[in-house]
Simulated assay, not measured.
Amino acid sequence: MKNAVLHPASSRFFADHGWLQSAQTFSFHGNYDPARIQFGALRVLNDDTVYGGKGFGRHPHDNMEIISIPLKGSLEHQDSMGNAAVINPGEIQVMSAGTGIYHTEFNKNQDQPVSFLQIWLYPDKLNVAPRYGQTDYSKGDRHNRFQQILSPDPNDQGVWIHQQAWFHLAEMDAGIEIEYALKKEGNGVYVFVIDGMVEVNGETLQQRDGYGFWPEGRTVIKALEKSNVLLIEVPEKW
C-alpha cells in the first residue's frame, strides 16, 4: 500500500534503565532516527515496563496530549492539578498538558512490574487549560469488534482529547475479520498489535508490530490467531 510504514517490534528503540524497560516505536529522548519521528499527530508510542516501587519522578509537560493504557499491574499517578489516582488494566488515562503540568507516575506495587503503553499526540489547540481524565472501559464489548476508548468529543465513548483522533481496541478470535471505517476523511490509521498475529490489508503483523497507513479504500483487520489490537486514527495535519 502506498504511503504506509511498517514498524516491526524488533526495529523499535530499546532503553534499559534498570528500573525501566522501554521499547519505543518513534524517536524519544536519546534515541533518534529522522525517519521515525511521528505518524501524523502520533508522536510517541512507548511500550514501558516499570519494576516494583519505581517510577517517573516529578517532571513537566506542555502542549501535548498524553495517554496511558495499562496492560499489566497498577500505575499510580499524581499531578500539579491535585489529581491522585491508580490506573489498572481495563482503564485509560489522559492528560491535556496545555499550558503546563507537572506529574509523577509510579508502579504502585513493590512485588510486581507494571506494563503500560505511553502514547503522545500533538494537540489541535495550543495552550489550553491542563486537564486530567480517566475511565474504565473493561466492561465494554470489544470481542470481535472495535470498542472506542478515546475521541475528540467529551460526550462520546471513552476519554477525550484536544485532537481529531480516535482509539479503538479489539479482542479477536482466530479467523475473524473486522472492517474499520474512518471517523474523519483524510485521517490515517496506525495499528499496534498488543498480542497475537493479524493481517491488515495484506500486511502480516505480529506481537508489538506497528503499521501506519493512509487508507485508500476499505481497512480490514483479520486475526490469524487470537489477538488483541489497538487501532489509532489520527490526522496527517492539524
Rank of each mutant, 00 (worst) to 15 (best):
E216D: 14
I194V: 15
V189Y: 03
A223T: 05
N228T: 11
E203W: 05
F192M: 10
G210A: 07
R218W: 03
I221G: 00
V200Y: 02
V229A: 05
E225Y: 05
N201T: 01
F192C: 11
V189F: 08
S227N: 08
R218T: 12
A181F: 14
N187C: 14
T219A: 10
V200R: 03
I221V: 15
F213M: 08
I194Y: 09
L205T: 05
E225L: 05
T204A: 04
I194T: 10
Y211K: 02
A181M: 14
E216F: 05
A181S: 15
T219P: 00
E199C: 01
N201D: 12
S227D: 06
W214A: 09
L230V: 10
R208G: 00
S227R: 08
G196F: 08
G210N: 09
M197G: 00
F192N: 14
L205A: 06
P215E: 02
R208T: 12
Y211G: 04
E185A: 15
L224V: 03
V220N: 07
W214L: 08
Y190A: 04
Y211Q: 04
V198R: 02
E203K: 12
G212T: 02
L224H: 09
A181I: 15
G210F: 03
N201M: 08
V198W: 07
W214G: 00
N187T: 15
E203N: 05
N187G: 13
A181D: 15
D195Q: 13
N228K: 12
R218E: 13
K222T: 11
V220M: 13
G188Q: 09
R218N: 12
I194C: 08
I194D: 06
G188I: 02
L205M: 01
L224G: 00
L230R: 11
D195N: 15
A223Q: 03
K222D: 00
Q207I: 03
G202D: 10
I221F: 01
Q207R: 12
D209Y: 07
R218M: 11
V189K: 11
Q207N: 09
V220P: 06
G212I: 00
T219F: 03
V229L: 12
L224F: 01
L205I: 03
E185C: 06
V220Q: 09
L205E: 07
P215S: 07
S227L: 06
K222V: 00
D209C: 03
N228I: 08
Q207F: 00
D209P: 05
R218C: 00
G202K: 10
E185R: 13
K226P: 09
G202N: 11
Y180R: 12
F192Y: 15
G186K: 13
A223H: 02
Y180T: 10
R218Q: 13
A181R: 15
Y190S: 03
Q206Y: 03
T204L: 09
G186C: 13
L230G: 11
L231Y: 02
N228H: 13
G186A: 14
F192W: 15
Y211C: 08
L231G: 04
G210R: 04
V200M: 06
Y190N: 02
D195H: 14
G217N: 13
L224K: 12
E203F: 09
G188F: 01
A181C: 13
K183F: 12
V189N: 14
P215C: 07
R208V: 07
L182Q: 12
Q207V: 07
E216Y: 06
V191S: 12
E185I: 14
D209E: 04
P215M: 07
D195C: 08
L205P: 00
E216C: 07
V198E: 05
L231F: 05
K184P: 07
P215D: 04
V193W: 08
L224A: 01
